[in-house]
């Protein structure tokens, strides 16, 4: 059997009132309180104080969960909302560039409609960019001479 001093017993009183003590400790405390008027008086006072504790509102946990979810959802939405203008501008630019390619093709001669036409690779500005005549068919050469005239 444990012999408790009052100072030790008093340390358990509030936990005892809240029903948080294990059976052996509670039994020991009850035994001490029965024999000790000072601790008994303090226990009664603590019981009265404990009754005064406010009840937690029943809806509170639900309200908290709702508020937390709302905060999380808003945080997530606002993140995507921040990216929205950038996404819109990018889409607009890509669309505009595609439209430009499709609708505004350069006005070129029949000869130049071949996108893969070979040009003379040279550092001389007069020659650079000149068509490579060797690869041209006779018909193309005739067309070219016609244009030069």
């Amino acid at each position: 059997m444990i012999i408790w001093e009052c100072i030790e017993a008093k340390g358990y009183l509030s936990a005892g009132v809240r029903g948080e003590l294990s059976e052996p400790i509670k039994a020991e405390l009850d035994r001490h309180v029965l024999d000790c008027s000072d601790c008994r008086g303090e226990l009664e006072l603590i019981e009265k104080l404990f009754v005064l504790r406010p009840a937690t509102p029943l809806q509170l946990p639900l309200e908290i969960k709702k508020a937390v979810r709302l905060e999380f959802f808003e945080a997530e939405t606002s993140y995507w909302r921040k990216l929205l203008p950038a996404a819109a501008v990018t889409t607009l630019l890509v669309s505009a560039s595609l439209l430009d390619k499709v609708l505004f093709l350069p006005d070129i001669s029949l000869l130049e409609q071949d996108f893969f036409v070979n040009v003379w690779p040279s550092e001389d500005y007069d020659l650079a960019g000149s068509l490579v005549l060797d690869d041209f068919s006779e018909e193309s050469l005739n067309l070219l001479f016609e244009e030069i005239k």
Binding site: R53, P54, T56
Partner: peptide, 30 residues
Amino acid sequence: YSLCFGICMAVLKDYDDASDACQNCFVNVF
């Protein structure tokens, strides 16, 4: 939540204020 409400209530001594403070507490926690 119960512990949190108890603390808020002990400090504020007002049901509505304590509920609000408790709610804000968890929003800030997460």
